[in-house]
């Protein structure tokens, strides 16, 4: 029971990743495959972000008073969430939107050429 309480979230992330993988493999429509790719990417991002989370930790912005004077009090590491996975995942999200744009452009190009978005109809015409 202890392992379920402490590990349940990893199982759900793995479930999300497998939903995305299944959509990429088994779906017929090209846009559904692209949606599966997006689900896979966001599942991996949430996996990384959850590694950086800490119990009873606040957001990774050092608390300071209003205005620009930063407070140089003693900074307790355990009080702030781990910022490194957040940085890596920021890059990942922006790259994923670029990839999404290119994937949808390829889908449009295929539709213009083969008049269909279904994988089996395209394979017949090839």
């Amino acid at each position: 029971m202890q392992s379920i309480i402490s590990d349940y979230n990893y199982w759900i992330y793995i479930l999300l990743m497998m939903i995305g993988l299944y959509a990429m493999l088994a779906k017929n429509n090209l846009v559904k495959k692209v949606i599966g790719m997006s689900i896979f990417q966001t599942a991996i991002i949430v996996f990384y972000v959850s590694i950086g989370a800490k119990e009873d930790a606040s957001i990774p912005i050092i608390a300071h008073g209003p205005g620009h004077g930063a407070v140089e009090a003693a900074i307790d590491v355990a009080h702030y969430a781990n910022p490194l996975p957040h940085v890596l995942m920021l890059t990942a999200i922006v790259v994923s939107v670029g990839t999404l744009g290119v994937a949808l452009a390829i889908c449009l190009g295929i539709h213009r050429r083969y008049k269909s978005l279904e994988e089996d109809e395209i394979q017949e015409q090839l």
């Binding site: 990774p60 969430a81 996975p85 957040h86 999200i93």
Partner: peptide, 26 residues
């Protein structure tokens, strides 16, 4: 989970621009 920068980016990029790009492609 405490990742406010990532959530901000996902709100603007994923829930905003990605959805619009999908609808435009459809």
């Amino acid at each position: 989970l405490g990742a406010v920068d990532v959530a901000f980016t996902e709100a603007s990029v994923g829930a905003g621009v990605s959805t619009v790009l999908f609808i435009a492609a459809v």
